[in-house]
Nucleic acid binder design. Structure first.
Lengths: 346, 346
DNA sequence: TTGTAGGCGTTATCAT
DNA sequence: ATGATAACGCCTACAA
């Protein structure tokens, strides 16, 4: 009955039922103008023939694909996995599908992905930009894309100077609260492992650290600020530099959970007790922070919420509920300090 | 010059150049039948107008989208992140794009994703199936899909009794080698944290454990085999059950790095030294295994390679280089034991 | 309530 | 070497 492998179309259904393809199309869309009886017949036949609507054809016709794109630096970071979960949750409900792409922190690859997604006619793109040194190209690039009227929504890591809607957490506040937590716990010589300063989130965490210190009347020793490049690389080295100071710090606020974990490991190796000799707090609330010993204090970034909000805003624009002007806003989520073993004596 | 926001098509380019759309189409495809001069003109004009080819229209016409689908249980597991990296590497080279979806370990959702992807006209789907209890439905489901001639390629976690191409690692061998490593290191009372036995990979790891024990002439105490349900849940509880035995084990082979890490944490809490009092080896080589203290011995699963091979085979079929018959094979990759601190005194 | 016709943007097959 | 035309599968005025 059904064709061997050739795809079933509404024409096949129409033919079998002695109807017209347009009636079938309407029936499948549950258009009330079609009689209930016909709708039932069509549904049954579609089921029988295992009909799979060709959404690409529909997209071409309607000029909308009901697909949204997401570009993140990498999927193997729990943070993005959770954000995407939040995005999917909202997208599912609104009848959108999601295409996920990884930029591997390459701005060039990121641009290529945007082009690809646009060519695939996805209705809008949500992106957390690559932590690449040369962002200038991307800024021009995004300006053009946005000027063309294409819906772009940034989240988490967003480009400087691009006039587009954005969902971020308040990293400055996160840095401030993490540092303040250490201060309130009685630590005074607080160091900071600082991420690359061309990346806004790291710059903000650093600024929050500075503000907390000044706010408490504590001076910031420049040698207490250590620049780290990548997650795993120089974790131990950074701590060695701190310990080699004439007056080593008694606490460290790290801009990344990974470096913080490296610090715990290095401390263990060099016989330094955490948190008795050295308190450590990280940033991101990666899942491993609960597994390691001692458990790592950190700053939670409201990841699910970030995903949900990002998707919501994107869908509002795509569905025409909100205009681009409504979107000029910057949505800022509040981070939350999570105190665990590495910064509190239990 | 260029239209405000309306999309540029080959017709626009053709019009501006006084050419026909079909010539533009050929020129953009670098068809040698078009004169070099025309090709250059077309290219320049396309650039000038910032033309973005509508791949959805091309897909409709050609009956091929050059998109491949990937369905994995979850993206926040490093394992899948790496496999996808391997897949992308090969796909990129072959000019394919990738759509990544998460089943969240729900067989039902997984089926829905397959349908969705097919409707989006992706050329083939690579899937690591959901670790859901009720797989029966999926088996019938996949049988139908495959019978319809649609290219499906399974990897990592594959369904039982479905006649489809598969890329897996030899979990039985991995279990065997992990256990044998412990035996060779001098441990004799070796316990196993066993994953859900309806999931083939966990069953195989268990069987490898049994084979290694029998191979070494060691008896397997049934109370040494602890069933674990999910990654984080009963890690500590499982270890407590072992320690409460009259003759506790001196080593544990865990079918998951997460449970193994939970064991390290529980040991620390209860004053048991790892690896002196208890050796632990996990499975998967998750990235945190290098961060925790002691570092966790584990079994690496050749993730990148798995992704590459899976993509290669899929592309061969889609591109028509291989037939479905060639694909009936089962590709088995060899796992590799990685010895770290949790199972060897340094 | 159902049918007809045209078009979404591209490509393949003709013809010129 | 280029142009005209049809078709991919679906949707939607408009007509009947």
């Amino acid at each position: 009955m059904a064709k061997k492998s050739g795809k079933i179309t509404i024409h096949d259904i129409a033919y079998e039922l002695g109807l017209n393809a347009s009636t079938v199309s309407r029936a499948l869309a549950d258009n009330p103008v079609v009689s209930q009886k016909t709708r039932d017949l069509v549904r049954a036949k579609a089921e029988e023939l295992n009909y799979q609507p060709n959404r690409i054809a529909a997209a071409l016709r309607r000029g909308r694909s009901d697909i949204l794109g997401v570009i993140v630096p990498a999927l193997d970071r729990a943070f993005f996995g959770k954000v995407i979960r939040g995005i999917e949750e909202k997208a599912d409900k609104a009848g959108f599908h999601i295409i996920v792409c990884q930029s591997y922190d390459s701005a060039k690859r990121e641009r290529a992905m945007v082009d690809t997604l646009r060519r695939l006619q996805v209705d809008g793109i949500m992106v957390s930009i690559a932590k690449d040194k040369k962002q200038e190209n991307n800024i021009d690039f995004y300006r053009k894309v946005i000027a063309s009227g294409y819906p772009i929504q940034f989240f988490d890591t967003v480009p400087d100077g691009v006039d587009a809607p954005v969902v971020v957490i308040d990293d400055e506040q996160g840095g401030f609260e993490a540092t303040t937590h250490l201060i309130k716990a009685g630590y005074k010589r607080i160091a900071h492992l600082r991420g690359p300063q061309h990346v806004p989130i790291y710059r903000d965490r650093y600024l929050g650290y500075i503000r907390a210190m000044e706010n408490a009347g504590l001076s910031v020793d420049p040698s207490y600020v250590i620049d780290i490049v990548s997650h795993f690389d120089n974790g131990e080295e950074a701590f060695l530099r701190l310990w080699n100071l004439s007056k080593p710090p008694d606490a460290v606020f790290s801009s990344s959970d990974y470096s913080a974990a490296a610090g715990i490991k290095a401390s263990e190796k060099h016989g330094i007790r955490v948190p008795e000799d050295l308190a450590i707090i990280g940033f991101s609330n990666e899942s491993f922070t609960e597994i390691i010993t001692p458990t790592l204090s950190t700053v939670d970034q409201q990841t699910l919420e970030m995903g949900r909000r990002t998707a919501e805003r994107m869908i509002d624009v795509v569905a025409g509920k909100a205009s681009l002007d409504d979107m000029e806003q910057r949505l800022v989520l509040a981070p939350r300090v999570i105190v665990r073993g590495s910064s509190s004596v239990q």
